[in-house]
Computed example of a mutant assay.
Amino acid sequence: MKTALITGASRGIGEAAAYQLAKEYDCVAIMSRNTDGKLNAVANQIHTTTNCECIPFTGDVSDFAFVEECVRSLVASGHPVDILVNNAGISLVGLFQDMTPEEFDRILRINVTSVYNTCHAVIPDMVRNQYGRILNISSVWGLVGASCEVAYSATKGAINSLTMALAKELAPSHIAVNAIAFGAVDTTMNGHLSVEEKKTLCEEIPAEKMAAPEEAAACISHILAMPDYMTGEILKFDGGWI
């Protein structure tokens, strides 16, 4: 029996991944701030359409105590985390000099500190079980950087480095740590783009379109199914864009 934990699972890539992994694993735990009740709707959908147990946790993944308590409750209920998908993330589009210290700190906490929190909480059981899969959701901007998304690019670059370093540390325990550097995915994170801006963006992408969340989820599923010998990789999924 395997349990997957997905952060940022109330919408976008995280929501699609939750639906996909619910078809493949016995239990899916999903995390989100759930400010609009969407997380519970995802859980209800999984309950009614699959045989997978779905456990929602509402709270802030950048809060270490919250994450630790969630993982502790999963272990106590017989669901130690075997698969971790670190998807929670935010962006802020604008000039770097206009970004406040509070905004910069918030992006760091949600995009990077949350990854520390979840990994720190689940790795001890993975090591004991000599099995685990950690998949960090990154971005092509973590590889090349994006104007007007400096902080976001910095956090995704940090996740890439964390992935490669942690993979080396955990490989002897048969725990694979990889990241996907997504390109343009048609989610609410790109909701600030106008119809014309999306059209222009798609013209820049050789595949001539943004990826659907369901395509992103399929990519996540395939990477998680790979042998643990594939570890420390930052895999692009961007339609040939970057």
Rank of each mutant, 00 (worst) to 15 (best):
N160A: 08
N160P: 02
N160T: 04
N160K: 02
N160E: 10
N160S: 10
N160I: 13
S161H: 01
S161E: 03
S161F: 01
S161M: 06
S161Y: 01
S161N: 09
L162H: 04
L162Q: 03
T163I: 03
T163D: 03
M164Q: 13
M164P: 00
M164L: 00
M164T: 03
M164R: 02
M164E: 09
A165S: 15
A165H: 07
A165K: 07
A165R: 08
A165G: 14
A165I: 09
A165N: 12
L166E: 02
L166G: 03
L166S: 04
L166A: 09
A167F: 07
A167M: 08
A167P: 09
K168A: 10
K168L: 14
E169H: 00
E169T: 03
E169D: 10
E169C: 01
E169R: 01
L170A: 04
L170R: 05
L170Q: 02
L170Y: 03
A171M: 11
A171W: 02
A171C: 10
A171I: 06
A171F: 10
A171K: 13
A171Q: 12
P172A: 13
P172T: 14
P172D: 11
S173Q: 14
S173Y: 15
S173L: 00
S173G: 02
H174T: 08
H174R: 14
I175W: 11
I175D: 12
I175F: 08
I175G: 11
A176W: 01
A176I: 01
V177G: 02
V177H: 02
V177R: 04
N178T: 02
N178I: 03
N178P: 10
N178K: 05
N178L: 03
A179K: 10
A179I: 09
I180Y: 05
I180N: 09
I180T: 04
I180H: 03
I180E: 07
I180P: 04
I180W: 06
I180K: 03
A181V: 09
A181M: 06
A181Y: 03
A181Q: 06
F182C: 11
G183R: 06
G183A: 09
G183E: 08
G183W: 04
G183P: 08
A184C: 11
A184F: 15
A184R: 07
A184L: 13
V185M: 04
V185F: 05
V185R: 05
V185G: 08
D186L: 15
D186A: 15
D186W: 12
D186Q: 14
D186H: 14
T187I: 13
T187L: 12
T188Q: 13
T188Y: 07
T188N: 11
M189E: 12
M189G: 11
M189R: 12
M189T: 14
N190L: 15
N190S: 14
N190M: 13
N190A: 12
N190I: 07
N190Y: 06
N190W: 06
